[in-house]
């Protein structure tokens, strides 16, 4: 089995060999490792991307907008991802975004996952029919169960989720009441003797 360290190093170097800058290649190395750690096929998808890289034209984005629709060519997942990550503090205000036609969209995913950590919000991402919940770059929850290469996406929707509870007040109250059953009800004697401070502290 390859170690994650090997995966990161090889992906970084391969990215550089494609012509990306060292700085971007460092991001790619981290991302492929991240995908593999989350159980998503990073190496496979990156390898497929590398194979097609020379013979295929990609459209680059510099400034990301609310709606990003490519012309004839698919967006490059790496430059789109880098710019998404870099600009996420501004993009967050747009609440939801869409990207039409991203090539090898699973390579775009780790940038969004890292962006979730940067802004401190969960991000919901829908890639055609597949859904991903990106949890502050700590985990990725998805209904993607195969290990295949995804060559392109027609539409990716991204939604920044506000930090709010995933449960109702009554559910919380129920647990709170249960948790109180681990506490001791203090009688008068305990109130006087079990705490550290004095009963009068006027000195």
């Amino acid at each position: 089995m390859k170690s994650f360290s090997e995966i990161e190093t090889i992906a970084k170097r391969a990215s550089r060999a494609l012509g990306y800058s060292w700085g971007i290649s460092e991001e790619v190395g981290k991302n492929i490792k991240l995908l593999e750690m989350f159980g998503i096929s990073g190496v496979k998808n990156f390898n497929a991307f590398c194979k097609e890289f020379k013979g295929r034209k990609f459209q680059n984005i510099t400034l990301i907008a609310k709606k990003n629709h490519s012309n004839n060519n698919h967006y490059c997942p790496i430059t789109t991802g880098v710019n998404f990550l870099d600009q996420v503090n501004i993009l967050d205000e747009l609440i939801d975004l869409e990207f039409q036609n991203i090539a090898f969209p699973l390579l775009f995913l780790p940038f969004v996952s890292r962006a979730s950590e940067v802004i401190g919000k969960k991000i919901f991402l829908k890639l055609d029919n597949t859904e991903f919940l990106l949890n502050f770059n700590q985990s990725i929850f998805t209904n993607l169960f195969n290990n295949n290469v995804i060559n392109s996406s027609k539409m990716i929707h991204i939604k920044f989720l506000n930090n709010k509870d995933s449960f109702g007040e009554s559910e919380w109250k129920n647990l709170l009441t249960l948790s109180h059953n681990t506490f001791v009800d203090e009688n008068e004697g305990l109130k006087k003797s079990a705490a550290g401070a004095g009963l009068t502290d006027n000195d």
């Binding site: 800058s21 060292w22 700085g23 460092e26 400034l63 880098v82 870099d86």
Partner: peptide, 9 residues
Amino acid sequence: LSENNELRH
């Protein structure tokens, strides 16, 4: 960075 990614590192 959007225009100078060669200096990213």
